[in-house]
Computed example of a mutant assay.
Amino acid sequence: MTQSSAHPEKKKPAKKKGGNAGWVPDQHGAWVMVIIPLVVGISVARPALIHLPLAVAWFVGYFAFFAAGLWMKARGPRKQRYVPPLVTYGVICVIASAVVIAMRPTILIFALVFGPLVAVAVWEAWNRRPRSLVSGESTVLASCAMIPVTAWAAGDPMTTRLWVSTAVIALYFCGTIPYVKTLIRKRGDRTWFIGSVAYHLAAAIAVTVLAATGLVTWLAVPVFLVVALRAWWMPWQAARRGTPWRPRTVGFGEMAVTVLVLVAALVPPGAV
């Protein structure tokens, strides 16, 4: 018996051809922006029965949007593979949305907010620019809009605290788009680096003003200074050592920062 037959080489598992089939979104960073606003909205307002169909409509709507993006990107016969998830998720989203509207008809007023933002994201996807800055920021703003939507659905008043919490979270999430690009797709691009750092400094100043006027806890100031510091240090360090950061490292770092931002957004002013 030869050595090769005694110890046959283990075949590597074949990679699935064709990539994502559209049923499960593979944009892991987007999951945070889908989950957090809903959780924050319920935390700032109050839990209500309507939040169940609202959560279904929101999550399944994201699944449908992801499948639609793949469908628009595909060419020829490959489009057909994305029709089942698109139709399935689309139908479930419509049904869940109808239930929400039946329970709270005035929630349709937020179509004035979501309509333009979703239209921008769809337009960018249709033109094969799903990862553009415009597309990213429009989807982030739509995500953050779920915070007041969640409170409105429960019949809670649109309080100042609610809007400030929404603004604080939106300031952070909007900054993650250019920040992540400076570490991956736009790594080494000086224009993107300067733009990202400038935005984060402006966000830190805005939060300082909110704290000075008593609209947000002073805890938010050091948190956003840390956020601004990481926007400068991470790309600078990667360029200095000549090695890019691993996406997993960036992701774990953002998980920690997100927790800090949530604390800053949810702790009432004067509590600390």
Rank of each mutant, 00 (worst) to 15 (best):
P148A: 05
V149C: 09
A151S: 11
A151K: 04
A151P: 00
A151Q: 00
A151V: 06
A151W: 04
A151Y: 02
W152A: 15
A153W: 04
A153Q: 04
A154E: 08
A154W: 05
G155L: 03
G155E: 02
D156C: 14
D156R: 13
D156M: 15
P157A: 10
P157C: 09
M158E: 04
T159I: 08
T159W: 13
T159M: 10
T160V: 11
T160W: 10
L162K: 10
L162R: 03
L162F: 13
L162H: 05
W163G: 06
W163E: 07
V164M: 10
V164A: 13
S165C: 15
S165K: 07
S165T: 15
S165G: 15
T166G: 03
A167L: 14
A167E: 10
A167N: 07
V168M: 08
V168F: 05
I169N: 07
A170T: 11
A170K: 04
L171I: 06
Y172K: 08
Y172P: 03
Y172L: 03
F173G: 08
C174I: 12
C174T: 11
G175Q: 01
G175I: 03
T176D: 03
I177F: 04
I177K: 03
P178V: 07
Y179H: 14
Y179I: 07
K181G: 00
K181Q: 01
K181W: 04
T182E: 02
T182H: 07
T182P: 00
T182S: 02
T182M: 00
I184D: 04
I184V: 14
I184A: 07
I184K: 13
I184C: 01
I184P: 02
R185H: 13
R185I: 07
R185Q: 10
K186C: 01
K186E: 01
R187G: 00
R187A: 09
G188I: 11
G188S: 10
R190Q: 15
R190S: 14
T191W: 12
T191H: 13
T191L: 12
W192F: 15
W192R: 04
F193L: 05
I194H: 11
